[in-house]
Amino acid sequence: MENEKSKMIVSMIPAKSQGLKMIAIYCRVSTTHEEQEESLDIQIKTLKQVVADNPKWMLYRVYSDKDSGGNVFRPDFQKLIFDCYENRFDIVLVKTISRFARNTVDLLETVSRLKGLGIEVIFQQENLRTSEADNDMLISALGAIAQAESESTGEAIKWGLKRGFISGNSKLYSRKCFGYKQNEDGELIVDEEQAAVVRTIFDLYLSGLSIGLIVRELEIREIKSPQGKRIWSKKSIQTVLGNEKYIGRVLLGKIYTGDFPNNKQFLNDGEHEQFLMKDAHEPIIELEKFKQAQEEIKRRSNIEIVNGAAKRKGTHYSSKREKQD
Rank of each mutant, 00 (worst) to 15 (best):
R129P: 00
G253T: 08
D83A: 02
E155W: 05
R175C: 09
D67M: 04
T31H: 10
Y180A: 06
I91F: 12
I255Q: 14
D203S: 15
R74F: 05
N103M: 09
A101L: 11
E34A: 07
P261I: 12
I13K: 14
K289N: 03
K235L: 05
V250C: 07
G154Y: 03
T200S: 15
N268T: 06
Q36H: 15
V250N: 06
D134Q: 11
C84F: 03
K235Q: 11
E192S: 13
S140G: 14
L93M: 12
I97A: 03
K313M: 11
Q274G: 01
I42H: 07
R300M: 03
V62H: 04
Q124G: 00
T96V: 00
K7W: 00
S112D: 15
Q147S: 11
I284L: 04
I220C: 02
T31M: 11
G314L: 07
R99N: 12
E149M: 10
E192C: 07
N243H: 04
D191T: 02
I122G: 00
G258V: 06
E155M: 10
T130S: 08
T104G: 13
N71P: 01
G253K: 06
S39F: 11
D134N: 11
K176L: 05
I119C: 02
Q49W: 03
K162N: 02
G160Q: 11
N3P: 03
I9T: 06
K7D: 01
Q18A: 13
R28Y: 08
G19L: 06
Y180W: 12
I97G: 09
K95Q: 12
M8D: 12
T315W: 12
T153S: 15
K7T: 05
S64D: 13
E282T: 15
R28Q: 11
K234N: 14
R61Y: 01
R88G: 04
D325Q: 13
G164Q: 15
I44F: 04
R199A: 14
Q49H: 08
D269Q: 07
P283D: 08
S167F: 08
E244G: 00
H33L: 14
I97F: 06
G258K: 02
V121Y: 01
N262S: 14
I231V: 15
K320F: 14
W57D: 06
D185R: 09
E219W: 01
R102V: 10
D203I: 10
G179I: 09
A144S: 15
F165Q: 08
E295K: 11
Y256S: 00
I220E: 11
L267K: 13
M277S: 13
R300P: 02
Q194H: 09
D90Y: 04
Y85N: 08
K79P: 01
K289P: 03
N87F: 07
S150V: 02
L138R: 13
G248T: 12
L241W: 04
L206V: 10
L206M: 14
N135M: 03
T110L: 09
W159R: 14
D65L: 09
N103K: 08
